[in-house]
Design a binder for these strands. Structure first.
Length: 867
RNA sequence: GCCGGGAUGGCGGAAUUGGCAGACGCGUUGGGCUUAGAACCCAAUGGAGCUUAAAUAACUCCGUGGGAGUUCGAUUCUCCCUUCCGGCACCA
């Protein structure tokens, strides 16, 4: 009797003892790096959705090992993060404790399903041995000018007194509220750390050429990066009624420069730096009020008011460089400070937002594009607002097609006259990585007032050397070639005091996360309250101790997970994040399977990889050669699994009831990996029946081992090997299992023609999916441990076909019969044709009919076409 | 609004990429085994029609969201439409 509850733990123990899944450090086997997205170990445990991905990579790893590859298949823990900290706040248990508990549980669950990880390479992002290198990477980015500090709006819960991640802000009754206390979230400006991922926008776009990623993921990232070609146009400003242009100009970005003759106003964001210079005295109050009101709106609310555009006139005018017309300058909060230049020129006739704005404030509307339906009258309703057609009322652009020739010509014109330039803008923003939270890696910098003082006093060169001093907001960056400053020194202001931002030395890493911290939220970063943390802080640059402070923010967990795949190559290295030999040996990742984190993890990991490539640490610049994402697994009721619906499937229950092999195989049998599909308990039972049959049939074969396999059975086996090998390479595990089931159905009906020689090969095919039963039956056949070390069976093309092949006969495309043809004749059309024409039924049907043509698809179909 | 991906029996899905539509599994129905049930085994299972006393078998037509097209032949390719799912979005 097949008893998975007995054989599964037995073999799991043996595999562990014998270390069968250890990645080889030496040897000349070709490598294969097969990786899962490592989980965040939470109190909820693993569910069957996690296991779908883990099983898929496990099946593939086993397949690759059988093909003779040295497979790196590791697992670890994305262990820092908010849920553990929130739980700690609620229950008073330290996050390290809850996290360790969760890890132990996850690990036992993974082992329970027989996943073939090399546990000697286990990593944990909250371990100082790991985050030492996360901090090291931060310093590397800092040194290359890719990490900087700047003021930015964050989500703030006034009741919990804390910063919230975007995921913790939920919508309730049209308000953005804190998920824990329902208080309305506000936006607050705080000094934040950013990584300059925008520097890599073009590289992140072009990198897709040589990697095998799903189209949706690729397109999603391209969209997110949002490269847009357009033009930057400069506008002269006239303050109030003055007819002399002011010194400063305003710049606008547009993708539609061809509409410039239709411009009737100019709008700038309330945050625009020019506002101070251009608002006339009479409008001062209304503008100030407007700025105050829109400052209260979150970005979210600003985007919500789709139709209701508001704004206020500044009293000043801009000069349209194309036609010399003066147009009013308005302040409007539908213009976003974060996109383009924070200023737009308004063309109400050809932009819906501008149209709504112009309607509201009675601004002139000038049509410059004739609709493709011939409409060239005044634009009076929103649906008349179009972008495509022929240019009119536009001087030298008249008659040209708006989106092609006119666009090109006006760009040439602007460049030639010096009115503007071609310009590319991106939607991608720099990545905000600092968190005012406890459970994360500390950011390894200190703030030194003495260094800031040297800097201010011009200790190096006094700014006489002609090197660049840039000021923006609270920070000053100073890059100097004459005083041996290695890097630009950023200056920041904390509580009114100026500090230089000084990175720690590599030798001083890791900056350990103190354990004795009161992490109850009060509004400041919890680390600020640790006495240990601020003790004996020395500035690594000037050696000062007095008044030097540590950074108290921690790194976003996405930083931890942006490079973990590199650490798996050399997880215990204390001198480097990984040795270059180990990186060369295993990287890049050959197959990566997990959630479709298009705009977060997957783009951050690509960014880090490119930076490390540029710095010469690795010799590849795309981390994941092949990526596949997983579809959601729904409950049996077709709803998302949730405690609320009571439809959650617990893997432990499935394993104890039907066995790990049935669970694994069913997850692979359900359908393609990337589609959303519902769970089915009777479906798992079906797979269990399949294994029961294999169990009984193998025992039968073992007791009747004098049986010689028939030609038909042998052909079936070779066909099966061919089919499964093909499916494995394509990750089509559902059809691989289906074809094994077909073979078993044949075997069941023809027990006496399937010999042990075929059963042996069959078990090797089964092993990736049902490793425990395959191992047990391997032993039943009296074979040497272990089936996991067997080579993948080969098929002989000559044996794939049976002695005879059935050809379908069609007349005018309709199936009218079939004929058997010896397999060595199927390539010969003439021979097949004579057999087809000789068939009795065909003779009857084509009697007296003229045959116009015949078509033959080798080994499949013969089509006779009559007149 | 933009981008991406879908739509095939009662259900999950298959179709070697232009060649027998519905593999495989679930479910359902009938039968066997059994005192009975569970388990197991066997068989049937897209729809309509025709034939027949009835059943079996055979045969014919329709059928892959809808409509056109290309082709000897279309679930597969092209165009238009409907609809669902996912992502992004006052993005100038």
């Amino acid at each position: 009797m097949y008893r998975p509850d007995e054989i599964e733990p037995k073999w799991q123990k043996r595999w562990k003892e014998e270390g069968v899944y250890k990645t080889e450090e030496k040897g000349d086997k070709q490598k294969f790096y097969c990786l899962d997205m490592f989980p965040y170990p939470s109190g909820a445990g693993l569910h069957v959705g996690h296991l779908e991905g883990y099983t898929a990579t496990d099946v593939y790893s086993r397949y690759k090992r059988a093909q003779g590859f040295n497979v790196l298949h590791p697992m670890g823990w994305d262990a820092f993060g908010l849920p553990a900290e929130n739980f700690a706040i609620k229950k008073g248990i330290h996050p390290s404790e809850t996290t360790q508990k969760a890890i132990d549980w996850y690990k036992s669950q993974l082992n329970m399903v027989g996943l073939s990880y090399d546990w000697s390479r286990e990593i944990n992002t909250s371990d100082p041995n790991y985050y030492k290198w996360t901090q090291w990477l931060f310093l590397l980015l800092f040194k290359h000018g890719l990490a900087y500090k700047k003021e930015a709006p964050v989500n703030w819960c006034p009741s919990c007194q804390t910063v919230l991640a975007n995921e913790q802000v939920v919508k309730k009754d049209d308000k953005n509220v804190c998920e824990r206390c329902d208080a309305e979230v506000i936006q607050k400006n705080l000094d934040q750390w950013f990584l300059k991922i925008t520097d890599y926008a073009d590289r992140l776009l072009s990198g897709f050429e040589d990697i095998d990623w799903p189209a949706s993921t690729r397109e999603g990232q391209k969209n997110w990066i949002g490269r847009q070609e357009g033009a930057k146009i400069k506008w002269k400003i006239f303050i109030g009624d003055s007819d002399k242009p002011a010194q400063s100009e305003v710049e606008t970005f547009t993708k539609y420069p061809e509409t410039i003759f239709g411009t009737t106003f100019l709008a700038i964001a309330p945050e625009h730096t020019l506002i101070g210079n251009i608002v006339v005295t009479g409008e001062q109050n209304s503008v100030n009020n407007y700025i105050k009101v829109s400052a209260k709106k979150t970005n979210f609310q600003r985007g919500d008011l789709l139709k209701d555009k508001t704004g206020v006139f500044t009293g000043s005018f801009a000069l349209n460089p194309a036609n010399g017309k003066k147009i009013p300058i308005w302040v409007a909060d539908y213009v976003l400070p974060t996109y383009g230049t924070g200023a737009v020129f308004g063309v109400p006739a050809h932009d819906k937002r501008d149209f709504n704005f112009a309607k509201k404030y009675n601004i002139e509307i000038v049509r410059v594009i004739k609709s493709t339906n011939g409409d060239e009258g005044p634009v009076e309703t929103e649906d008349q607002v179009i972008e495509e057609g022929q240019m009119i009322n536009s001087d030298f652009l008249n008659g040209l097609d708006a989106q092609t020739d006119a666009k090109e010509k006006v760009k040439e014109y602007l460049e030639e006259k010096g009115f503007g330039d071609r310009e590319v803008f991106y939607n991608l923003r720099d990545w905000l990585i600092s968190r005012q939270r406890y459970w994360g890696a500390p950011i390894p910098v200190v703030y030194c007032p003495h260094c800031a003082h040297f800097e201010e006093a011009g200790e190096c060169c006094g700014g006489d050397c002609g090197c660049k001093h840039e000021e923006s907001g609270s920070e000053t960056s100073h890059s100097c070639q004459c005083c041996n400053c290695e890097t630009a020194t950023q200056i920041t202001t904390i509580d009114g005091v100026k500090y230089a931002i000084v990175p720690l030395s590599e030798e001083s890493l890791p900056v350990e996360l103190p354990k004795d911290v009161d992490f109850k939220p009060t509004g400041e970063s919890p680390l600020a309250r640790s006495k240990d943390f601020q003790k004996d802080v020395t500035c690594p640059k000037c050696g000062a101790r007095e008044a030097v402070r540590r950074e108290v923010d921690t790194l976003d967990t996405f930083v931890d997970s942006s490079w973990y795949f590199l650490r798996f190559c050399d997880p215990n290295n204390a001198l480097e994040f990984a040795s270059s030999e180990s990186l060369k040996k295993f990287c890049p990742v050959d197959l990566y399977v997990g959630g479709d984190h298009v705009t977060t993890h997957l783009i951050f990991a690509r960014f880090f990889t490119k930076v490390l490539y540029d710095c010469g640490f690795i010799d590849f610049d795309e981390p994941f050669t092949k990526f596949r994402f997983l579809g959601l697994i729904l409950g049996e009721d077709n709803r998302k699994m949730s405690k609320r619906w009571g439809n959650v499937i617990n893997p432990e229950d499935v394993v104890s009831g039907l066995g790990a092999d049935s669970l694994r195989s069913f997850e692979m049998f359900m359908g393609p990996l990337d589609v959303t599909k519902p769970w089915s308990t009777s479906g798992v039972e079906g797979v269990r029946r399949f294994y029961n049959r294999i169990w009984e049939l193998t025992h039968f074969a073992s007791q009747n081992n004098s049986v010689t396999s028939s030609r038909e059975a042998t052909a079936l086996m070779h066909r099966l090997i061919k089919k499964i090998t093909f499916d494995m390479d394509e990750l089509k595990f559902n059809t691989a299992i289906a074809s094994m089931m077909e073979f078993v159905n044949f075997w069941q009906k023809n027990k006496e023609v399937v010999g042990v020689d075929l059963v042996k090969r069959f078990l090797v095919l089964v092993a990736p999916f049902g490793p425990h039963i395959a191992e047990e039956l391997w032993e039943v056949l009296g074979l040497k441990f272990s089936v996991t070390k067997e080579s993948w069976p080969k098929f002989d093309e000559a044996l794939v076909y049976d002695e005879e092949v059935e050809i379908v006969i069609q007349i005018n495309g309709k199936v009218r019969g079939r004929v058997m043809v010896p397999s060595d004749e199927i390539k010969d059309k003439a021979k097949v044709e004579s057999k087809v024409l000789a068939a009795e039924k065909v003779r009857e049907l084509i009697k007296g009919v003229e045959i116009k043509a015949t078509f033959y698809s080798e080994g499949r179909v013969f089509n006779i076409v009559s007149a």
